[in-house]
Amino acid sequence: MNKKTSNARWILLFLLPIVLLYTAFFIYPFGFVFFSSLNKWNGISHMKFVGLQNYVNLAMSTTFQLSIRNNIIWALSLGFLQVGFASVIAFILARKPRFWKGLRTVYFIPKVISGVAIAMLWKAVYNAEFGALNAILTFLTGHTWNVNWLGEFNSALPAIIAQEVMYIGYFMIIILAGVMAIPRSYYEAAEIDGASVLQQELHITLPVVWGTIVTSMTLAMAYGLRHFEATFLMTGGGPGHSTSTLAIMMYNKIGARKLGQASALGTVLVIIGFIVIVTLNSTLGRKSLTGEDT
């Protein structure tokens, strides 16, 4: 009895700092954003209550529909492709092949480099006039390529997503930390039973780190939903809004001083994301750790 109440007190004490800070930096601002989403507001004059008008306007805008579609494509690409590649790399590196330490550091470096520099690199690679990609394709195929990769409706979105998906360092270090924590003894036993490397990965590594992979997928999808930086720097949402995302739209609305609409976009983003997180956690997440229910 006594122990229980003292535990409860400790729990409260341990949760207090995070609750305070989270309230101040997430719940209060989100409340503010939600409140302003119900208003017409230019940031200067007083807010004017308009109910759900901002949401109705959004729902009817074709750019909004396009942005939602793009965000879903982003979330799926990052969640499955990027995390998939990251997992494979992590599994291989955990077996310490030759040069593994160097490889691991290099994989992570793009995460350290500012997004501005990376975006400029890819803009130069994808450029129609002097870009490296066209030059390589011309060399390989023998006929002239002059595709304006970031300026055509068909290629712009895949081009931005492709460069992002290839930077696996972020999720690689999360998953690698999980894989490296698996005791050697698990594998030793399997080796004695004659299991091949692939079988070991499939039957030991994957189940043990499944929880971490789901964590990474959830994070990756969240990043896909709120994606902003690379698109902003490489196409700004163009050509003709075809690569727009919710966050890009929101940024433009802030620039146009339509803060009510910007807030409505922010609110929609959080609501969609919340649904995705809860769904992912309750479907995939249940099977973490050797299939046990946690």
């Binding site: 409860a8 729990i11 949760l15 995070i18 609750v19 989270y22 101040a24 930096f25 997430f26 209060y28 601002p29 989100f30 503010f32 954003v33 940031g43 959830t218 994070l219 969240a222 990043y223 939903l225 709120r226 902003f228 919710l246 966050a247 929101m250 940024y251 802030i254 803060l259 910007a262 807030s263 976009l265 922010g266 983003l269 959080v270 969609i272 994301g273 919340f274 997180i277 809860v278 956690n281």
Partner: peptide, 29 residues
Amino acid sequence: FRLKNSISNILVAGVLVPIVAFMVPYLAL
């Protein structure tokens, strides 16, 4: 304890928040 899953979900949902939206409230805070 009660509410632990709710607290957990709410904390994690913060991942989604587009931080640029918070410029006005953060400056005020």
